[in-house]
């Protein structure tokens, strides 16, 4: 009886990991090289920048908080921020559609959009 339940556990574990792998594969396949960097604050698009033009700017969010966005060599990332966890700074630079840098405390989403994808997404 218990052996059977442990076998079931293993099957469950394997299917969960397979699901993760499948989800990862589907998300990767759907990605294309990006064209624009879209900045969203609290779910609303606040600015769009071309990915091929280098840029460094401070994004100001609610309560006077700042995240410094850098676009360089076709990749975008957050260089510094005054949020408590700094997870947005740790996230890797993004360049393909669907990739994001997200700062949960500041409700800030930086997203890569493709050709013509700026208005149709979200």
């Amino acid at each position: 009886m218990d052996k059977k339940r442990i076998r079931n556990d293993l099957i469950l574990l394997a299917s969960i990991l397979l699901a993760a792998l499948a989800a990862w594969g589907v998300l990767k396949l759907a990605q294309r090289p990006g064209k624009y960097v879209v900045v969203e604050i609290d779910g609303k698009t606040s600015a769009v920048y071309p990915l091929d033009t280098d840029l460094r700017l401070d994004i100001k969010t609610e309560g006077g908080h700042v995240n410094t966005l850098v676009i360089s060599e076709g990749r975008a990332y957050v260089e510094s921020a005054d949020c408590p966890d700094k997870l947005c700074v740790k996230q890797r630079a993004i360049s393909r559609t669907g990739e994001t840098v997200i700062c949960l405390p500041h409700k800030l989403v930086i997203r890569i959009a493709g050709e013509g994808g700026v208005d149709t997404v979200s």
Binding site: A20, W24, G43, G98, I102
Partner: peptide, 20 residues
């Protein structure tokens, strides 16, 4: 839902693995 950004789904595979 809170950020109305479906791209957050990209975290799901990582979070599934760390969850196991």
């Amino acid at each position: 839902i809170l950020l109305s950004t479906k791209e957050i789904a990209y975290w799901l595979p990582v979070l599934i693995v760390t969850g196991t």
